[in-house]
Design a protein around this nucleic acid. Structure first.
Lengths: 240, 240
DNA sequence: CGGAAGATTGAGAGTTCTCAATGCCTGTGG
DNA sequence: CCACAGGCATTGAGAACTCTCAATCTTCCG
């Protein structure tokens, strides 16, 4: 039951950013050669490791994170299906942060050889570069959120961002999406405490912007939520 | 009085990251064709602009920043001599943030044609990729600072980072460096108020880690400062 | 010498954190 | 099918950190 190659989340994404040739698509069919499953909350790769492959998210979420000596944890990115986890090891050789699954996840392990072959193709290289620039834009936006928005706006902005990104890969309906992360995970991404995240979520609920039960978020009023967050999706460069 | 081409801050940097051929260096000699000077606190390029060139810092500092509707400002990066300001416009076409000079600065305007020619050279492309990955690592570290370090650690970490980066381009002595930014600039980069930055700087002084007068910082006890900041320079990938 | 911008200090307010208790859901074993 | 344990979510109260507002001081520069 191998899904059609064009349904592959990476290929769908690359198609949007660069024009792939038939040859490119053929090369990319090697992507599924080594797919591994992770249960929730497992390390996919740790700081300091020197892998000879890179990781590509196929299903589920993972997060990029760094641990602090005092036991603190800061998540610096959520990685969704179609996202590469660590293209930079191709260059640096060594991980300077860790990556772990959030909920259950399927990850493609891509050999260094295939990676280098991909970079050789102008269409693929261009799309990968695009994706890496988007990652950078997202990091900048996170910094703006941390520096200049209060906890309420910050939580709302993260919800908006995840919603937009999930929609772009077909993983959100008109008004709902699955959120495999706990409130602790959210707090580690937002630089808040789990207690405070909980209070903010309550307020978002009370103000009629969204609800959630189990691991499903329902957006009740997108406009209001986006306005509260100061969210403008253009930084994600989804529609260019 | 054109300085020798090998003293060019970008070329020095690229030499460290990739091996440049003689042809590469020749191509890069076109870098100084259009150099412009900015006085302090000028916009070099604004959000929404679609320039047909990219900017490279030659002297002085600039900063990447975003403005918020409420008048807030968040600096997301300090750009030092040898740093590119906006390679991403080559891909995105449009600026999704602004860049302004901090103190007086000299900036090279590089045509799209030269930029594309540079990217064609494997050695240069590799070095540019390296630099962009370092930029990303710095952004991640900033997020960790915002999310999980208090104001004291955060200020100390920024000082450590700037000190290390300035040393790597020969702009810091054994224990001092010039800081063209005001405390307001620092506060916009740190997500704090100028008042609070001032208090933290006072404490850093009182604890014997550093002093400053005019626009010069003196590091009195690097070890102590780095320990207070939780600073580990490896993320800057300066020595690989 | 005067004016403007930046730096410094004080006092009180607001946001977020810490600590601690309670409630809820889920999976497991009897 | 029920009881129970463990993890997560929720709530409360007080503490800590950072902000706001406002005044004063210093430096720079015409």
């Amino acid at each position: 039951m191998v899904p059609r190659i064009m349904d592959h989340p990476l290929i769908a994404k690359l198609q949007r950013f660069g024009n792939l040739t038939q040859d490119d698509v053929e090369l990319l069919s090697g992507l599924n050669e080594d797919v591994r499953s992770f249960s929730a909350r497992r390390d996919i790769i740790c700081e300091g490791e020197k892998p000879d492959h890179v990781h590509l998210m196929l299903e589920g979420w993972s997060c990029r994170y760094q641990l602090l000596p005092d036991g603190g944890k800061q998540i610096t990115a959520f990685l969704l299906p179609g996202d590469f986890c660590d293209v930079h090891v191709t260059m640096f050789g060594k991980m300077d942060h860790s990556i772990g699954s959030v909920g259950a996840a399927k990850v493609a392990f891509i050999s260094r050889e295939l990676m280098l072959a991909m970079i050789e193709r102008p269409g693929i290289a261009r799309a990968l570069w695009w994706a890496s620039l988007v990652d950078e834009a997202v990091l900048r936006k996170w910094i703006v959120n941390f520096g200049r928005r209060d906890s309420f706006e910050r939580v709302a902005h993260l919800i908006c961002e995840l919603y937009a990104r999930l929609q772009s890969v077909g993983l959100a309906t008109e008004s709902t999406f699955d959120l495999p992360s706990t409130q602790k995970d959210l707090s580690d991404a937002l630089g808040l405490t789990p207690v405070h995240v909980n209070r903010v979520l309550k307020r978002l609920r009370e103000e009629g912007m969204m609800t959630f039960k189990r691991q499903q978020i329902s957006i009740l009023d997108v406009r209001k939520l986006q306005a509260a967050a100061g969210f403008d999706p253009s930084y994600l460069h989804l529609a260019d």
